[in-house]
Nucleic acid binder design. Structure first.
Length: 414
DNA sequence: TCTGGGGTCCTAGGACCC
DNA sequence: TCTGGGGTCCTAGGACCC
């Protein structure tokens, strides 16, 4: 009898092939077999027919077109992706309850408890691939090994439309000949640094003293890569992972410089972030804005509040102050991207009223603001601050806020 | 001719507290 | 009074992932 053991190849990594492009083809079969890319501005995903020409995800659409003039580009704004993703994850969950969602098209599964029901990890990998193809028409590549990071590598090697199983005892033989870029955490910069040290394969990392990598990469990064190269990765498959931050960003084609032009964007982004937080009953303490300039350099500014909030109004207040600061600091710069993020996320905060006190009515934006989270009624706030205008965050954003007497302004959001 | 919209983790310096 | 060490929090930047 098969005894499920921790050393079996029982961690699966499943990765849908060219997900966005594949869904686009399913929705519009006339695209089948043609070089096609999904994206606007940059390529999100492209068919294997397009990859033959060198087209890759992340590449500007313009560049992709120059490599492959007959490339068909569709914009990915249709909403079928989540439907397909849900159908696929339902299949995964029919094989094991231990499914860790990495993204819309990627998951880890621990099938060690499913072996007595469905067969070996290799059997399960084959069954999942068959089910996904039959029920959704999509190809999914699967890696099955004893370790998370190794399964992820195996599924990459298996692409397109493949299955690779690495059994206990075979890991290093599989791993060591591969180029370093297969490792999670090795991007262009790290690859270049490693290559400069004469390190090209994962086996080279394993044979290099940690200290000589640490001086180039930092100690944590070096230790991480060294561990992976020796097949050390104790991380379990986790079914639920709490979000640590939420963000929204917007790239701007028309380059803009002034606060007046940027504020509507800031308000819209903040409303998106805060709305998503409230929908999940979350609140956050730290607000970060990121600005990218015309020369592609970027800066971030963050503020940590004394307490968490999910209020659009409170976040707008804090973000606006930072934006004003940045514009004063870089007056000549064009802004090409603005991002608003909330981190330090907590769950189930009590009722909050975030408020700002505006003692300067001449400017369009609130100044000298305080913010707190209060468990007080609006009436109590009105008494305390003498406000005669109470506005909701959404009113603030739609521009219907009235700064009548300018005594103060209270923004609530509940 | 410069490229979207989400995320995670790490580092380093300074402030502050014990 | 001076000096030192350890720990935590905050800010800013950077690399990387899908």
């Amino acid at each position: 009898m098969d005894v499920p053991s921790a050393s079996a190849a029982s961690i699966l990594h499943a990765d849908l092939d060219a997900f966005y492009a594949a869904v686009a083809v399913k929705e519009n079969p006339s695209l089948a077999g043609k070089p096609m890319a999904v994206g606007a501005g940059v390529v999100l995903s492209c068919t294997y027919e397009a990859r033959v020409y060198g087209v890759r995800g992340g590449m500007p659409v313009r560049e992709a077109r120059s490599m492959c003039p007959q490339l068909i580009v569709v914009d990915g704004t249709f909403g079928a992706y989540t439907e397909y993703s849900k159908a696929v994850f339902t299949i995964y969950e029919s094989y094991t309850p231990v499914v860790e969602r990495l993204s819309i098209d990627e998951a880890f599964m621990d099938v060690s408890g499913s072996i007595h029901l469905f067969g070996t990890p290799a059997d399960i990998g084959r069954s999942i691939r068959d089910d996904v193809k039959r029920e959704t028409g999509l190809a999914v590549s699967v890696g099955a090994t004893p370790r998370k990071f190794l399964s992820k590598i195996a599924s990459q090697v298996a692409k397109p439309d493949g299955l690779i199983v690495v059994n206990p005892g075979e890991e290093l033989e599989f791993l060591h000949p591969l180029p370093v870029s297969y490792l999670w955490g090795v991007g262009p910069v790290t690859k270049r640094r490693l290559n400069n040290l004469g390190i090209h394969t994962i086996g080279d990392i394993a044979a290099t003293p940690r200290d000589s990598m640490a001086s180039m990469l930092g100690s944590a990064h070096a230790a991480h890569l060294y561990a992976l190269s020796h097949n050390l990765d104790p991380r379990p498959v986790e079914t639920r992972r709490k979000a640590k931050s939420l963000s929204a960003q917007s790239a701007m084609r028309a380059r803009i410089r002034t606060l007046d032009e940027l504020l509507p964007v800031l308000n819209r982004l903040t409303d998106r972030v805060a709305g998503r937080m409230r929908a999940k009953d979350l609140s956050a303490r730290t607000v970060t804005i990121k600005i990218r300039f015309g020369d592609l350099s970027s800066i971030t500014r963050s503020t940590t509040m004394p307490t968490s909030t999910g209020s659009t109004g409170a976040i707008v207040v804090v973000a606006t102050k930072m934006l004003e600061r940045v514009l004063a600091e870089f007056p000549k710069h064009e802004t090409t991207l603005l991002s608003v993020a909330a981190s330090g996320i907590a769950k189930g905060e009590p009722t909050q009223l975030a408020f700002g006190v505006d003692d300067d009515v001449s400017g369009g934006s609130p100044r000298e603001l305080e913010y707190e989270a209060l468990d007080q009624s609006v009436d109590a706030l009105r008494k305390r601050f003498g406000a005669d205008v109470i506005t909701h965050g959404s009113d603030l954003l739609s521009g219907r806020t009235k700064n009548t007497d300018g005594l103060s302004e209270i923004m609530t959001n509940d």
